[in-house]
Design a protein around this nucleic acid. Structure first.
Length: 714
DNA sequence: CTTGAGTTGGTTTTT
DNA sequence: CCAACTCAAG
């Protein structure tokens, strides 16, 4: 390696970079130059004679992979190394070894909404009530099982209580539906790959010998399936380098198992551990606050962030009246920053939930501050985009019934519910897929002559594209857009069609981009790739705009100035995370805040609003407990006189809830012994009024106002 | 069969 | 508040 490059590294970074053989764990705090270590390490490997072809680096997002590719190239290790996410790697492996893995290579990847459809069907097929067995809950449970590599059959053999047995039935059914449609959900990609590597030793050793050096970033957020895949890939040589920081583990809810990183030394007894504790990113002002906050987590190894920068601006904590005022305060601070020379590129605003972006966007538009909402997947959720993609999906995978049903009457071509039902009945009777039945429409007696003709016309459209699945994607997408009738329908739809047309154009351009970049463009590959896009992938660091994103999306990024808004009880920590008790989930919320804070280099602005509109209702909030854990002189400005002022003010305005009500549904309250909860119902009968509260402990209580110590609004 | 109005229910974070 | 679903009229 180039001497000047290695001179930029600290001794511990050098150790991590040049420790070539055997297992290596890099425990790296935020801002420790971890990414740089990995890219330098790739370069060092190549430098020491390793063929790039034998290197596999796994990152957390496609964006991170892209950046790493570029940086590695800049260090002279260009081309050949496989750098991607776990999911992308699994797609490649599954396509290559489809036969052994028990999948067909043209599988569709099912996203959350596709999964929801399949699950609804599964619950219905099992003759269960959707209220007792909500599809979302079922999916959650199944996802957890899949992440632990428990497939439907093993779970069925294992289930002993009523709920588990029911869940097992649903799981089997759900999986059957997926299989029939040749669809894999995100978890399947991992599970199938893990099973493949486990049950085919020759495949496992072939891959392990191909990837002689394995590097895995953000190891603290790997789940069991990923852990097993990683172990299998390293099985032949043990050249596994994992990097991560237990304090930045924020995906426990998705099955990430912090144990993976904690047990690395046990898994690989001859492992070398390198710690990167210096922080090159943030000022001591910020690190002190971060340290103080994360110190409130009990289940962690003690670790200090060692600052290397000089003191600079103090951390600013702002209390605003409501979310609009909070957004206004963000705008004012941004204007101050830009007035002193900061670029909008250097500014980011983080929030806990996506819905919070709206009020910020409105404020930015009013103040003419340009911004980007980092939400890449949103584009692919637009109706017109999903429609066009559904056509492409059906071409690649005709068994994808979800896609087929989406387009069969889009744009409207007179194929309604009755026709589809008859088609389905025929398919079921003859053990055919819906698409097969469609091709036989002529022979289905129950169909009217008209219906037959319409179905034939539809099949004809698809038939014209049958041979186009191999080559470039852009031209196919463009032609299909026209010939499917989507184009005509959108052009007819006056004003809102205009946006839609632009979006479709963007999609076609993106597809053409893909054609240029891919070594061997194909529709299958394209569709599978875009299914794995993440929000962060859309982040453009040179856009000259303020970046708005969730705290989760902020992972791995850094900004000169960071705003974190809505730091309130119920939001951060989020109320859904059973966080009144000192639980693991609460600790994860704290880590999430920690991740947000440590993204900031120089300016850190934390804020909360005293009132916030939640589901259309203006509610009193409680400042987050985390604010008190920051260790800086934070005093809650709320005092009682202010409260009453506001109450009065509120009562003057009609439409803000009944003035006599002391509680309104949805409101956050605190009880001396039950803790935090939300008002479900307030039965206002004067002196004997009753409040029904659902507490975070899970229990719902009806409390009589005059006997209870319910505190709220705060 | 299509469309629009009305109702209902669900609401975190994401590969 | 919003999306997804239901139902009735055209």
């Amino acid at each position: 390696m180039d001497n000047t490059l290695s001179q930029q590294l600290t001794p511990s970074q050098k150790r991590a970079v040049f420790h070539i053989e055997g297992p290596l764990l890099v425990l790296a705090g935020p801002g420790s130059g971890k990414t740089r270590v990995i890219t330098h390490r790739i370069a060092a490997l190549v430098d020491s004679g390793v063929r790039p072809y034998n290197i596999c680096a796994i990152t957390f997002t496609n964006k991170a992979a892209e950046e790493m590719r570029q940086r590695a190239a800049a260090l002279g290790a260009s081309g050949g190394a496989h750098i991607s996410t776990f999911h992308s790697l699994c797609v490649r492996i599954l396509r290559r070894y489809a036969g052994s893995a028990g999948v067909r290579p043209n599988f569709s990847i099912y996203d959350a909404s596709d999964q929801a459809r399949c699950m609804k069907q599964a619950v219905k097929d099992c003759e269960l009530d959707a209220t007792n067995f909500p599809p979302a809950r079922m999916l959650d449970a199944i996802s957890t099982l899949k992440n632990k590599l428990v497939d439907a059959e093993s779970f069925r053999d294992y289930a002993d209580d009523f709920f588990s047995k029911t869940l097992a039935k649903v799981y089997l059914r759900y999986q059957l539906i997926l299989n029939e449609r040749n669809g894999l959900d995100f978890d399947d990609l991992l599970l199938r790959t893990a099973f493949l590597l486990d049950s085919w030793p020759d495949v496992c050793s072939e891959l392990s010998n191909r990837f002689k050096f394995l590097l895995i970033d953000e190891y603290q957020d790997t789940n069991h399936a990923q852990y097993r895949i990683a172990s299998a890939l390293a099985s032949q040589h043990g050249n596994i380098c994992a990097t991560g920081d237990p304090d930045q583990s924020i995906y426990g809810w998705r099955g990430a198992d912090i144990h993976n990183i904690l047990a690395f030394e046990t898994d690989w007894p001859d492992a070398t551990i390198v710690k990167l504790e210096e922080n090159f990113r943030s000022t001591p002002n910020i690190l002190t606050v971060a340290d103080s906050l994360i110190g409130h987590n009990h289940k962690r190894k003690l670790k200090k962030l060692l600052p290397t920068r000089q003191k600079d601006k103090d951390v600013v904590i702002t209390a605003s009246e409501d979310e609009a005022a909070e957004a206004g305060s963000v705008v004012r601070h941004i204007e101050e920053l830009t007035a002193t020379g900061a670029s909008l590129n250097d500014i980011a605003v983080f929030y806990r939930v996506n819905s919070m972006s709206r009020v910020l966007e409105e404020a930015f538009i009013r103040s003419k501050i340009v911004y980007q909402v980092v939400r890449g997947v949103e584009f692919y959720n637009r109706k017109e985009i999903r429609d066009l993609l559904a056509y492409l999906k059906v071409l690649v995978n005709p068994d994808d019934e979800i896609a087929l049903l989406r387009i069969i009457n889009t744009p409207a071509r007179g194929i309604g519910k009755v026709t589809i039902d008859r088609l389905r009945a025929y398919a079921a009777r003859n053990q055919l897929s819906l698409f097969e039945a469609l091709k036989h429409a002529e022979r289905i007696d129950s169909l009217s002559k008209n219906a037959k003709a319409r179905l034939a016309a539809f099949v004809d459209i698809l038939r014209r594209f049958e041979k186009d699945t191999a080559g470039p994607v852009g031209p196919v997408a463009e032609r299909l857009f026209e010939e499917s009738g989507l184009a005509v329908a959108l052009r007819a739809a006056a004003d809102q069609g205009k946006d839609a047309l632009e979006n479709v154009n963007e999609l076609i351009n993106a597809a053409a981009d893909y054609d240029r970049q891919a070594e061997q463009p194909s529709l299958i590959d394209y569709l599978q790739q875009i299914s794995l896009f993440s929000d962060t992938d859309a982040y453009d660091p040179a856009s000259g705009r303020v970046a708005l994103m969730t705290l989760h999306a902020a992972k791995g990024l850094e900004f000169e100035n960071v705003f974190i808004v809505g730091v309130e009880e119920g939001l951060l920590p989020h109320e859904k995370t059973n966080s009144y008790e000192d639980t693991d989930e609460l600790e994860e919320e704290r880590r999430l805040f920690f991740v947000g804070i440590t993204r900031a280099k120089t300016g850190l602005y934390i804020s909360y609003a005293r009132y916030r509109t939640i589901r259309g209702q203006l509610l009193r909030t409680i400042p987050s407990r985390f604010l008190f854990e920051l260790g800086c002189s934070f005093t809650e400005p709320a005092d009682h006189d202010d409260d009453y002022d506001h109450e009065d003010h509120e009562q003057d305005q009609p439409g803000r809830g009944p003035p006599s009500a002391r509680f309104t549904a949805g409101q956050l309250v605190q009880h001396e012994s039950f803790g935090l909860g939300r008002v479900k119902e307030f039965i206002d009968i004067g002196e004997n009024s009753i409040v029904v509260v659902k507490f975070n402990t899970g229990q719902t209580k009806s409390l009589m106002l005059k006997y209870t110590d319910l505190v709220g609004p705060f």
